[in-house]
Nucleic acid binder design. Structure first.
Lengths: 180, 180
DNA sequence: AGCCCCATGTAAGACGTTACATGATTGT
DNA sequence: ACAATCATGTAACGTCTTACATGGGGCT
């Protein structure tokens, strides 16, 4: 329902091919709206048929040709329409929480090791976010418009990862002192 | 992939019908692993065929008969096996973040109103979590085993909502001072 | 009279995942 | 020689969502 709109936002920032979009999704907008390249190709074609985007075939040397997509006037209208509409609150699907809840029905120590592993992954992602922040937004107080909005979304990612990390620490501590 | 295991955890805590499970998902485990009643009925049947659960038909007066499901020995083994296996990190799908990122391509004020609305929803859910905490875990320091694990998962929910709320506040403040 | 609750289910369609296919180019 | 990158796509399958169906009981 909203992958279309995530693509419209990304394509408005910069035109690009499905392949490029898939990579942007892997390292920015996809942190909040994950999508694989197959989804993106399929949705792009649908959007093209609906007239929300247009494409230009670009021949390349030594590389396969590509289709560079651009948002059309209809697409901009559709995006504006969607932006004014309510969205469902964020959905979280967390297998680790299910495991922690069921920990005593299996190997509690293994679940604890899994929490430690997740802690590492969240710490790594937090570092990625901090890196983007330093590189792209060195002076946050001066931002406005699109840059401010991109920064605010990044702040959401940073907050979410910090909160995950702190939760993992709380779980690790509580489960460790329980076992000893 | 893990709805089965979330159901196994919930059914181990207490046997119940598909209908009852659907309600439990609406107010506890479903905060971390959402599922509708149709999904639950379908998966329960599959689990029954696989021998992970067994069911007993219970005739009722003035109400439709129900099938009360129980976890079998095979189901307990499967749960233990799954608990020792790695899980993917939590997936977040947040339409609000997409909207904030694209805010300047439409009615920025409408997006801001939407952030305010989400702030309210997160505050309400946080209150629900706090209520559960007070009712079910009045003395967290003394918990161990299954109760401790349930409490820790609830703490994750509280932390996630607190972090969302703080993010909404940050976004609201930044977007308001930008507009004026 | 109309609606909600209990309880289970069918059916259709949208959406997402995984594997595979192509084929030149660049790097190890 | 092998793998990765660029670039797009097909095919099969699995999951999820949405709407609808049934039918008694209780509430307003």
């Amino acid at each position: 329902m909203a992958l279309e709109h995530a693509i419209l936002v990304s394509l408005t920032e910069r035109a690009g091919s499905g392949y490029e979009l898939a990579h942007r999704f892997d390292r920015s907008i996809g942190f909040f709206w994950p999508a694989t390249h197959q989804q993106i190709y399929r949705v792009l074609r649908r959007m093209d048929e609906a007239g929300w985007v247009t494409h230009t075939e670009v021949a390349q040397e030594g590389r396969p040709d590509k289709k560079v997509y651009q948002v059309s006037a209809t697409g901009r209208d559709e995006l504006a329409r969607w932006l004014a509409e309510p969205v469902d609150p964020a959905v979280l699907r967390d297998g680790l929480a299910v495991k922690i809840r069921g920990a005593s029905l299996g190997d509690t120590a293994a679940v604890l090791r899994e929490v430690v592993r997740h802690r590492g992954e969240h710490a790594a992602l937090l570092e990625v976010y901090h890196g983007i922040r330093r590189r792209d937004f060195p002076k946050p107080a001066k931002l406005s418009g699109r840059e401010l909005h991109q920064y605010l979304v990044l702040r959401g990612g940073i907050r979410a990862e910090e909160s995950f990390l702190a939760w993992c620490d709380e779980v690790i501590e509580a489960m460790r002192s329980e076992q000893s």
